[in-house]
Write a protein that binds this DNA or RNA. Structure first.
Length: 110
DNA sequence: CCCTGATTCGC
DNA sequence: GCGAATCAGG
């Protein structure tokens, strides 16, 4: 399994958003949680509080959302805030964060 | 015991 | 650099 940009992006995206290595591994498919953790570690990530509490409000796709719900920083801290940029109609994120969250392998627009 | 992530070892 | 194995913590 070659770690392509989109796979790494998905890995980092899910990892950063509090997904467990198993969820990410299962999502990517063909990789074990060890591979995900190992890759994440190599990427410069690693430190992850076990089974991060659901205080990271993994943004739920809402109907008619107009502002990007992408969580920035840590909840409970002064740094925690949402992106708040104008999201695309029907999607919880702005175009850039939507791209990070829903990035597809065939989304490559040269 | 189960789960998690982190680190280390071998390929 | 990749993945599995192993270790450590919850």
């Amino acid at each position: 399994m070659d770690w392509t940009d989109e796979r790494v992006a998905l890995l980092k995206g899910m990892w950063t958003n509090g997904y467990t290595a198993r969820q990410i591994a299962e999502k990517l498919g063909g990789v074990t949680r060890n591979a995900v953790i190992g890759k994440a570690h190599r990427l410069g990530l690693s430190s992850r509080p076990t089974q991060v509490k659901r205080h990271t409000p993994l943004p739920i796709p809402h109907v008619v959302e107009r502002h990007c719900q992408w969580p920035i920083g840590h909840p409970g801290t002064d740094e925690f805030h949402f992106c708040g940029k104008n999201a695309v109609p029907g999607k919880p994120y702005c175009e850039s964060h939507c791209n990070v969250a829903y990035r597809r392998k065939d989304d490559n627009a040269a």
